[in-house]
Design a protein around this nucleic acid. Structure first.
Lengths: 250, 250
DNA sequence: GCAAATTTGTCCGTATGTATC
DNA sequence: AGATACATACGGACAAATTTG
């Protein structure tokens, strides 16, 4: 053990501690750049060569770092033009949950079921708040979407689903909690993508669906929290039903 | 307009439609590979050169695709050994929300506030379910963590927070909804990371905190849904308070 | 509408670091 | 400890896309 000198390589060759990959340092460097310059979504970032020089990494490493940040929607790239600060959406959550839903082999439907339950929890969680403070104009805004759904009927499935989506977005909007709205929207996306792959019909487009939504609006207008919660339960019931049926078919 | 032949370039030179980057095709290719082979988290994936040949792309494109999938925890890489199917966790959500919390310049605290509200919504949303079905043994499991918190006191902050975390994990566990548990855990992580940067103390470690948790356990044991909800509200009150104070300091 | 300039996308070859056996 | 297989990182070159003059 008593040797006259340390082995040749160890004590860090100076250039890099390198306990973590270089690309990760670049990721942190870009994050820090955005934060310390107080950039906003859409603001331009330095070009790839500029980042290479600033962070002391090759273009490959910088590009891989940018890919990571792009996947998180922290960075957005426009081919042939430049890189920018991303929108910081929850697109990564959608990607992640979608893949999980498509993969899970033991019980393909647990993910879907959980998803719906969380959405229902969000909407029922605001029952008291809705009857307490707000009411009239929110109901009017919701009514517009119900009318749109009724007009589209079974004829225009695309418009119907768009109105359905807007309805539920408007439902959680008054909470003033952006996170809930974005999570709810993300879950809707995942459901629409995954459900068809599991032979679950995504929507009925029928009169019952319209009636259920109408009932929710009426409950808001009547400021009846109990009825509101009950209407929501009945609204989600057929969805749970469809998932259960599809699960039984396997 | 009547010309004998179309312009030179258009109708796609055959080799690639290329409306989307090649790396994205590689991403989809790897996803498809995992799905069609029904791989599970931890299962090995082909090596980089193998993927290059199988998907007809260069190393750069394959590597960038792997970086994207790694950011989503769909793929996991072990340096010098191989690439594997990832754990499909919500780590991307944590990264994304954390950065958003650190960035948002107009109101640094909205993200934090929203976060706490969603967690509270999750836990209060299961009030009826707890009193209805389960009760005794769940309360026992929760009691263990409260005792741990009491023992740790203000002395061991690390143990205290670990017990606090476990308590809330156990609280939502009986729902049988993994998604809620993972979202709740993710929000906890984000809070712990972001709060210090905003001069918000993450925890009090005091007797009041312990007492509030004890009150929740007692409510579960007494099967009193109203008391349960009230106890939760009082538990989260100081957290809201701390955020409000920090917000006022700016 | 064309052409040039800028920027990102893709490829290849090579060298290095790291983990397993 | 050595050998092998693999991922990491670099540099240069050319292709594709977009804006601007």
């Amino acid at each position: 053990m008593a040797r006259e000198q340390a082995p040749v390589k160890p004590v860090a060759p100076e250039p890099r501690a390198a306990r973590q990959p270089l690309r990760q340092e670049v990721v942190d460097g870009i994050k820090t750049y955005i934060l310390s310059n107080k950039l906003r979504p859409g603001d331009p970032l330095p070009t790839e060569p500029a980042l290479c020089e600033a962070l002391g990494a090759s273009r490959s490493s910088v590009r891989e770092a940018i890919r990571i940040l792009t996947a998180l929607d922290i960075v957005e790239v426009r081919h042939g033009y430049g890189t920018y600060v991303g929108r910081l959406s929850l697109s990564a959550l959608v990607e992640s949950l979608t893949f999980r839903g498509l993969l899970s082999p033991d019980d393909d439907f647990q993910v879907m079921s959980d998803l719906i339950e969380v959405r229902e929890l969000f909407e029922r969680g605001m029952a008291e708040r809705l009857v307490g403070a707000l009411g009239g104009e929110e109901a009017d805004r919701l009514q517009v979407f119900v009318d749109t759904m009724r007009a589209a009927g079974a004829g225009d499935a695309h418009d119907f689903m768009a109105a359905d989506r807007s309805f539920h977005a408007q439902l959680v909007a008054p909470l003033g909690n952006d996170l809930i709205g974005q999570l709810s929207a993300a879950f809707w996306e995942v459901y629409v993508i995954v459900a068809p792959h599991l032979d679950v019909f995504t929507s009925e487009h029928g009169d019952t669906t319209v009636a259920n939504h109408q009932r929710i609006v009426d409950a808001v207008r009547a400021r009846d929290a109990g009825e509101f919660a009950a209407a929501l339960r009945d609204h989600y019931e057929p969805v749970r039903q469809r998932i259960a049926e599809a699960r039984a078919r396997r």
